[in-house]
Nucleic acid binder design. Structure first.
Length: 791
DNA sequence: GCGAGCAGCGTACCT
DNA sequence: ACAGGTACGCTGCTCGCG
């Protein structure tokens, strides 16, 4: 008997001789695979006497084969918050589970759970923990213990392929892959045309190129393979080429197996014995949760934003031309750079992805393909299993539709009075929704209909939540929050150069991502733990707290300017009063809730809505912080679908008012912009309006300017599809603005009147109105009537 | 026949 | 394919006016 220990990386399963084995990917001295006998199962809610019937149930597999349970146990478990005796129905193989479930005449549970997850949950096998085991050949005889660990070192390699594309898009059965680059411990480029570059290796033909690439992968032996859109492009393309050329594409550790997996809307590619991370969906994920601001998810844009360096660009359309005209040096350089950049990005994201994997108890490969909803769900299912609770089933399509049709009332936003203000204090509730969920024990199964009011938290909607016995969701949120506090404490004691610092920082971020996703998950139509009452109660308590705090502030003599969801903006004279007020509020709040100071601002601008000036616009303000930094929200200046000339002038106006208190400078900036526009000499870069098409251009009923510009692009042979970002300039020719909208590439002139009346003036007038100006003053003459000095 | 007014679509933003 | 709340430009329609 041999005793071993290794880091656990990933799990899937294998059926051999009609027995099911969990196949673990582990990393000790080397990365390898071991097998463990384990049977899949699901739960059935049936009376004791039904046992014999259950044993005889036959399910039909897709191939027609009949299957029946392997064995059946009676277990004590918790179903919908109530203790319950259930049958645990073991099956011979994972595919049997669904087949047998479908033939069961009783309610079934947890049949829709991947077998490897089931195993991980049962064993408390968390990714990157250390597994100690007894080994017999390739098999785990016994798992001795599983130990948490902070460490794990993964070898990473990025790759990128170039394909011949004389028709625009390459046809995988016809057009060859012409180049493959990689960046791991070593880096290089393979091609069957030579380039005078050190990193460039000449091979005789495409077939040899593929073989050589497999050799390099075997040599480098990476644990993690990165690509950019590699699940949808590079891997499938290489696979098709290998098939056409009759080459074995062995990129895996032991085999050539490349398996397509679908997770929700995204597809991934599982590479045998390695962890393939496609950076594209990963970047999308970071975009959705707000860690990445970029709206375009090209490798270049993401690299620029995340790493902060510009990447040298070649127009992708020209790859085949470069190939044909033998500009192989440039092409080779470009290809290598893509791999190097992909590796840099991958290594940048990896620590956070590893920590998400640890925190959500989900293998790294799956994390890289997951949405935050899936991470939350996985964590909840893991915890449910530990607490012997049945996880709720996924909603039916009908239920999802029903949920979508009935949205949940959200947050409260106070209407601000337009104006320019001095001395603004901003405070907000730290983690409002998570703290409400914990404070009021909000969970689908602490929810009760007939609870005594003294034993329940009663939400403003009337929903009642039992006080004692903490619900699963509050317990998970509590754990996430407390754990993060602990990590932050440790971070303070750790040296920034220490490798541990990076890990802790990433873990803190992972915990934050999960914590902030829980409320959204409760209201997510496809969630197993969706609960209208819970989500509604959470926001209702949120509205109650913010409104009560606003009322208290007013009672304490403050003028409350504005508030949105969890924040309060108030005018102050003495900071001490602000701090005292906050202390008072915090004393009255439940323990887990806290109002904290965001900062003091010396001056702020709030503007009126487009039509009515008296009512202020929500979600739109600009303030000058004490640190000299501007906090600008919602203004045209932060929106990409406005031209730079309008945005820059608006910024000048705001800065003149906030920093210098000079309305003259503000007006001068506007007059200058008008003059420049009238001169006709403003370059197109300042006039471009950028808008994304969220649908295919053909699917619009209405012809908006961006759709019109997109169609003009299409006519010129430039492909435009769903998700394309359109840059256009409003020209002189045409009646409607859509007529006038010209793609930036084809813009010949611009319409000064449009830019003055529809871009510049709307952006600045709302602000200047607060200073007493009207449009006539700016466009025609100087201000005649005495305004007096505002400041 | 024409302009004003308005609803609805669509995008991007805020928390 | 984590939530809802909000502003606002533009199109294309209705409606009143003459």
């Amino acid at each position: 008997m041999i005793f071993r220990k290794a880091y656990f990386l990933d799990a899937d399963y294998l059926i051999k001789n009609n027995e099911t084995y969990i196949r673990l990917l582990i990393k000790g001295k080397t990365t390898t695979r071991v097998y463990y006998r384990y049977d899949p199962y699901f739960y059935v809610d049936a009376p004791e006497e039904a046992k014999n019937d259950l044993e005889k149930v036959h399910g039909r597999l897709k191939d027609g084969k009949l299957v029946s349970p392997k064995s059946i146990d009676r277990v004590d478990w918790v179903l919908s918050g109530q203790p319950k005796k259930l049958f645990k129905v073991y099956c011979n193989a994972p595919p049997d589970v669904l087949a047998i479930k479908q033939a069961m005449p009783f309610p079934c549970y947890e049949y829709n759970l991947s077998f490897s997850k089931r195993f991980m949950f049962d064993m408390k096998l968390v990714p990157f923990s250390i597994i100690h085991y007894e080994r017999e050949g390739k098999f785990i005889k016994k798992i001795i213990k599983i130990e948490e660990s902070d460490k794990v070192q993964l070898n990473t390699l990025a790759f990128d392929i170039e394909t011949y594309n004389p028709l625009g898009a390459s046809r995988e059965r016809k057009d060859p892959a012409i180049m493959i680059s990689y960046a791991g411990k070593t880096s290089g480029v393979l091609s069957f045309k030579d380039a005078n570059k050190e990193a460039h290796t000449l091979v005789p033909d495409e077939k040899t190129m593929l073989e050589k690439f497999c050799e390099i992968i075997a040599q480098e032996n990476p644990d993690v393979i990165y690509g950019y859109n590699s699940s949808n492009f590079d891997f499938p393309y290489l696979q098709a080429r290998a098939e056409v050329l009759n080459v074995k594409l062995k990129l895996g550790r032991k085999s050539a197996l490349l398996k397509k997996v679908t997770k929700g809307m995204v597809t991934g590619m599982r590479v045998d014995g390695r962890i393939h991370i496609d950076i594209y969906p990963a970047a999308r994920f970071f975009g959705i949760i707000g860690m990445i601001k970029s709206q375009q998810f090209t490798l270049e844009k993401i690299y620029e934003e995340v790493i902060g360096k510009k990447k040298f660009m070649v127009n992708r359309k020209n790859i085949w031309e470069m190939w044909d005209s033998n500009e192989i040096e440039t092409l080779s350089q470009y290809s290598l750079l893509d791999s190097v950049v992909t590796k840099e990005l991958g290594d940048h994201f990896l620590p956070l992805q590893i920590e998400l994997s640890r925190v959500a108890k989900m293998p790294l490969f799956d994390v890289a393909l997951s949405t935050s909803g899936q991470l939350v769900e996985n964590l909840l299912m893991y915890e449910a299993a530990q607490q012997k609770m049945i996880s709720p089933s996924r909603p039916s399509d009908g239920a999802v539709k029903e949920r979508l049709a009935n949205p949940i009332e959200g947050a409260y936003v106070k209407i601000p009075a337009p104006g320019i203000y001095d001395n603004i204090a901003v405070m907000d509730f730290r983690g409002l929704y998570p703290s409400i969920i914990v404070s009021y024990n909000i969970d689908p199964f602490t929810l009760t209909k007939d609870g005594n009011e003294n034993e329940c938290f009663v939400s403003p909607t009337g929903a009642k939540f039992i006080k004692k016995s903490q619900g699963l969701i509050p317990s998970v949120v509590n754990w996430l929050v407390d754990y993060r506090v602990k990590i932050k404490h440790e971070l303070k004691k750790t040296n920034k150069d220490d490798e541990k610092y990076k890990i802790l920082e990433a873990r803190s971020n992972a915990l934050k991502i999960l914590t902030n996703s829980i409320y959204g998950y409760l209201g997510y139509a496809r969630a197993r733990w969706y609960s209208r009452e819970c989500a509604e109660s959470t926001t209702a308590w949120g509205r109650k707290h913010i409104q009560e705090t606003i009322a208290s502030a007013e009672k304490a003599g403050f003028e409350v300017l504005y508030g949105d969801t969890d924040s309060i903006f108030l005018l102050y004279k003495d900071r001490k009063q602000v701090l005292a007020f906050m202390e008072e509020i915090n004393k009255s709040l439940p323990e887990k809730m806290e109002l904290e100071l965001e900062g003091f601002f010396t001056r702020g601008v709030f503007v009126g809505k487009k039509g009515g000036e008296e009512r202020g616009a929500k979600k739109k303000y600009a303030m000058l912080g004490e640190d000299g930094r501007l906090k600008i929200r919602g203004f045209e200046l932060v929106r990409r679908d406005w031209s730079d000339i309008a945005k820059n002038t608006q910024k000048k106006v705001l800065e003149a008012i906030l920093r210098e208190g000079s309305k003259e400078k503000a007006v001068a900036a506007v007059r200058e912009a008008i003059a420049r526009l009238k001169s006709g000499k403003v370059p197109f870069e300042e006039l471009v309006i950028v808008t994304q098409l969220k649908k295919d251009p053909r699917d619009y009923d209405l012809l908006s300017p961006e759709v019109s510009a997109a169609k003009k692009l299409n006519l010129q042979g430039v492909p435009v599809e769903k998700g394309s970002v359109i840059s256009y300039v409003v020209g002189k020719a045409g009646k409607s603005i859509s007529d006038k909208a010209q793609p930036l590439e084809f813009a010949k002139d611009y319409d000064p009147d449009y830019y003055i009346d529809n871009q510049l003036m709307p952006a600045v007038m709302k602000i200047l109105k607060e200073l007493g100006y009207d449009e006539y003053d700016l466009k025609v003459g100087g201000k005649q009537k005495g305004l007096g000095d505002f400041f």
